[in-house]
């Protein structure tokens, strides 16, 4: 009897475990399916994907879309341009977001709420609304058609969100830690650099990723402010493929896949820090 009940219990637990795994696998499957489908259609001959029903597993593999892509378009250069643009944007955002969220979390001053409001306000403005004045300004100052100046615009648009995200991370650092640093003789900025930044390193990683992805994807400013083909970032290059009538779909999907690989790998490499960074829970008092 006893053994039977024990077995039933174990079976039930086993069943629950299986159900749990089935749920997780099913969910991940649904989430990842579009990614899978993109890969499948970029590596199988186009005719396979253009029949009904399409084969769920590629029956034949061809890397022709990739090779023709690399032969016909300066994808390497696009990639380098995007990397550069995203890196510069990230650096600008990091510097300013640290200062901004520091002021919002640890400093006492009047107008904090108004500042927070202002930050959110700027985020409510669609880029399409400001692109004309920004272009006019850049043109008058002779700043258009350059990646560094483009990164300034990108940084301005993602900075407010990054300040909020970093503030969230700073919030979980006990105020006592900051005060202890002050008592130890640090200046506020010294305390920020020596004590707070090391504690919020994961938060900084998270903010970097947010900024990096934004600049990587940003299209409207890039296509407006960049005129010369040789400093085009990937987002613009990819769009130029899509609008061409004669670009075969498999090549477009190959390009889209190629465009996605880098941020995904980047993310997978540093994801540990991201989750930790978005919480910074370890130091909460």
């Amino acid at each position: 009897m006893n053994a039977g009940a024990h077995l039933r219990h174990r079976l039930r637990r086993f069943g629950a475990g299986m159900a749990f795994y089935a749920l997780i696998i099913g969910f991940c499957g649904v989430v990842l399916f579009p990614v899978y489908w993109m890969i499948v259609n970029a590596i199988q001959p186009l005719s396979h994907g253009m029949q009904y029903p399409p084969p769920m597993i590629p029956e034949e593999i061809s890397f022709l879309p990739f090779t023709t892509l690399f032969e016909n378009y300066p994808v390497g250069r696009w990639l380098v341009n995007s990397l550069l643009l995203a890196t510069m944007t990230t650096l600008i955002v990091l510097a300013l977001a640290v200062l901004g969220s520091f002021a919002m979390t640890f400093l006492k001053w009047r107008g904090k709420a108004a500042f927070g409001l202002l930050l959110l306000m700027t985020q409510m403005l669609p880029e399409a609304l400001v692109v004309i004045p920004v272009y006019a300004m850049y043109r008058n100052l002779g700043l258009s058609d350059s990646l560094p100046t483009l990164s300034l615009v990108d940084a301005a648009f993602i900075l407010p969100i990054c300040i909020w995200v970093l503030k969230n991370s700073f919030d979980s650092i006990a105020e006592e830690i900051y005060e202890a640093a002050l008592i130890d003789g640090c200046s506020p900025l010294g305390a920020l650099v020596r004590t707070l930044l090391p504690l919020s390193a994961p938060g900084l990683v998270a903010v970097s990723v947010v900024a990096f992805f934004y600049a990587w994807n940003e299209y409207l400013f890039a296509v407006t402010l960049i005129n010369s083909p040789d400093i085009r970032p990937v987002a613009v290059g990819l769009a130029s493929l899509k609008v061409m009538l004669d670009t075969p779909i498999d090549r477009v999907l190959a390009a889209a896949l190629f465009f996605s690989i880098f941020p995904v790998i980047f993310y997978l490499l540093i994801q540990r820090y991201i989750v930790a960074g978005l919480s910074a829970g370890a130091v909460k008092g």
Binding site: P74, R77, L84, G142, D145, L147, P148, T149, S228, D230
Partner: peptide, 20 residues
Amino acid sequence: NRPSTGLLRPFSMGMGRRDF
């Protein structure tokens, strides 16, 4: 023969091999 005209264009490599 395509000098860079931008203010700061670090990766403007002029003409690529293929273009050439």
